[in-house]
Amino acid sequence: MHTAIYAVLIALVLVIIGLAAKTLLGPKKGSKNTVLITGLPFAGKTTIHYLINYGKSVDTVTSIKENEADVELVPGKAPLHIVDIPGHERLRFKFSEFMPIARAVVFVVDSATVARQTRLLAEYLYDILANRFAQNEKLPILIACNKSDLITSFKKERIQSLLEAEINKLRQTRTAALDTQDADGNENVFLGFEGQDFTFQDLENEVEFIECSAENKDMEAVKDWMAAVCY
């Protein structure tokens, strides 16, 4: 009896080790397949994450930890690893930890509050665009204008022009900022072309704007974009 149990145990151990090896080594072996979902607090990142991965709309509060999931967007293809990064300023450093493995970034914007938050949005977006990995690998970036169901929401063209104007100012101030202590100096990239107003077309990254609504479970466009970019 005991031997039987142990045999089972050993078999299980082997299976578990196999699984662990797969999960540990899997993502690193293949090409990058991680999509980051990020944005300001209350933009609807976690809701979108659960909609895309589990097709459920859920109640959420401010996230403390990132949510991760693997989802097969296109049946038969390798699953995408989707990470929802908390939006709170204090936790923002997490996005730079995930950038090295990112394949694409979804930047979620609350279309209804965009006018009030333009500067915050632009600053975060600037950090993402100016990130070394985003620059080197020309990561595609989707700006998902969530909450388009609200009457007060802005159209995506309006959001784009607001962000462009703000980033235009920011790139002046950011490049003029003081060096950091150990001054490796490689983080001060200049977005777009000097002497011209900033537009997203100037970037080498592919930047797209899509209107969506987590409230109406209207996520198809975002999913399509992910699939198009990653496969």
Binding site: E89, R90, L91, F93, L170, T173, A177
Partner: peptide, 18 residues
């Protein structure tokens, strides 16, 4: 520590001045 030290507000003084 990272959480604590990461600023929660913008520290872009030049942007404020602008």
């Amino acid at each position: 520590l990272k959480r604590i030290l990461t600023p929660k507000t913008s520290v872009d003084l030049l942007r404020d001045i602008a």
